[in-house]
């Protein structure tokens, strides 16, 4: 088991964004986390990556309790994420963004960086070739010198994925990667996530594009108003009465199936 969420709750003042959520993800799975807007999906990501700690409950990664440890340590342990509202380093080049993503995979400090020791040069060389390979994977090779904020929306989302992959994660958290993408881009995204799976990376996916979720995911957990509504295979979820109602009750853009 890669990730195990045990009875996690999160309150903001009076609002409880998550109530007693548990689920676990197996190695190599693509695991879906769906639910209407405001259901608490992003909050779950924020708890896992320690943007803030959960109010109660615990989070186990590869059987190790990682609840509330510093965010950068979580990344070092092998969890990396993308953000729903894109958070690239907007004035850096595309390649630099991915290089920063490789921070946890490198070690050079002030002096080796300034005096360019042999090991530093090797490390930098390796970071760059990995970064270029990842840009190739997400289809952004030709833009490596472009400034990140000048990329189109869908490209920025893919760059976020490449940046996250640069940390060589065992578990990748994707927060609405298809948001703002057109049909071709979404189709490409399907293959991209599949390719990531082939690399042995486990993926936890938040997504509103139901056809994509249903095709990609091995299992899905549904949240509604911070509570777990259902869990199961795509088929089970599509046929779950409660889930259908929850989606019908919310705005139209979250059509299931």
């Amino acid at each position: 088991m890669v990730l195990k969420i045990n009875n996690v709750s999160k309150n903001f003042g009076g609002i409880s964004a998550l109530t007693d959520i548990s689920f676990s993800i197996n190695k190599g799975e693509i695991f879906g986390l769906i639910g209407p807007n405001g259901a608490g999906k992003t909050t779950m990501f924020n708890c896992i990556t320690s943007i803030f700690p959960p109010s109660s409950g615990e989070i186990l990664f590869l059987d190790e309790n990682i609840t509330g440890i510093k965010p950068h340590k979580i990344t070092n342990k092998g969890i990396c994420r993308t953000f729903q509202n894109i958070r690239l380093f907007s004035q850096m080049s595309v390649l630099e963004n991915v290089l920063v993503g490789g921070h946890s995979q490198s070690h050079s400090g002030v002096f080796s960086g300034v005096f360019r020791t042999k090991s530093q040069r090797n490390e930098e060389e390796k970071l760059r070739s990995t970064a270029r390979e990842l840009l190739e994977l997400v289809g952004l090779s030709e833009f490596e010198d472009a400034v990140a904020e000048n990329l189109a929306y869908g490209q920025q989302r893919r760059l976020e994925i490449a940046r996250a992959l640069a940390s060589d994660p065992k578990l990748l958290l994707l927060d609405e990667p298809a948001a703002g993408m057109n049909d071709t881009e979404t189709a490409d995204l399907y293959y991209l996530i599949k390719k990531v799976q082939e690399r042995g990376v486990t993926t936890l996916l938040i997504e509103h594009d139901m056809p994509l979720v249903m095709r990609l995911c091995d299992r899905i957990t549904v949240l509604n108003f911070g509570k777990k509504l259902a869990e199961g295979t795509p088929e089970e979820i599509q046929n779950n009465q409660e889930v259908i109602e929850a989606y019908l009750g919310s705005e139209g853009d979250d059509d299931i199936a």
Partner: peptide, 18 residues
């Protein structure tokens, strides 16, 4: 690069393991 990342977006920098 770590300095620049922190300047541009502290939270994102942290999420990248910095």
């Amino acid at each position: 690069r770590a300095f620049a990342a922190i300047k541009m977006d502290e939270k994102a920098a942290e999420a990248m393991g910095i």
